[in-house]
Computed example of a mutant assay.
Amino acid sequence: MPGPLDGIRILDMSRILAGPFATQLLGDMGAEVIKVERPGRGDDTRAWGPPFVPGEDGGELPESAYYLSANRNKRSVAVDMSSAKGAEVIRQMAGECDVVIENFKPGGLEKYGLDHDSLRGLYPGLVHCSISGFGHTGPNAHRPGYDLLAQAMSGIMAITGEPEGEPMKVGVGVADVMCGMYAANAIQAALIHRMKTGEGQHIDIALADTTTSWLVNAGTNYLLGGVEERLGNQHPNIVPYQVFKVADGHVIVAAGNDGQFERFCGIIGREDMVRDVRYATNPARLEHREALIAELAEELKLWLKAALIARMEAENVPGGPINTLKEVFDSEQVKAREMRIAMEFPGARGGKVDLIGNPVKFSGTPVEYRRPPPQCGAHTDEVLQELLGQARIEED
Results as ranks from 00 to 15, higher is better:
V174F: 10
G319L: 14
L114D: 02
E368W: 06
A70H: 10
N221E: 14
T210P: 04
P139E: 10
L25E: 13
L304G: 15
R337F: 05
T197F: 11
D354R: 08
P321G: 12
G357A: 02
N217E: 12
R15N: 12
M195V: 05
L388P: 02
I10F: 11
I293S: 12
R311C: 12
L296T: 00
W214F: 15
P359D: 12
D115H: 13
D204W: 09
D176L: 01
V174A: 02
V53M: 12
G86E: 07
V317K: 05
L296C: 05
I309T: 11
I267N: 08
E262Q: 15
N323F: 06
E299A: 15
T324A: 10
S331K: 00
A152T: 14
G173L: 08
V227M: 11
H193T: 06
V36E: 00
A186V: 00
T45A: 05
E344Q: 12
Y369P: 05
L122Q: 15
K35L: 01
P20W: 09
R275L: 14
M168W: 01
K111Y: 00
A152H: 06
W214M: 10
K305A: 15
G107Q: 13
V253H: 01
K85V: 07
H379I: 02
D396V: 01
R337C: 11
F244K: 00
V79N: 04
E299D: 13
A291G: 03
V33P: 03
A391H: 02
G173F: 05
I393R: 05
P283S: 05
G19W: 00
E395K: 09
C129E: 01
A184W: 02
L11S: 09
D248T: 07
S130Y: 05
P318A: 12
T365F: 03
I238Q: 14
N185G: 10
A65M: 08
G155D: 06
D176H: 04
S132Q: 00
D98S: 13
A280W: 06
E63Q: 13
S118G: 15
P50L: 03
P39L: 11
I16W: 13
R371Y: 15
E395W: 08
V251N: 10
M312W: 11
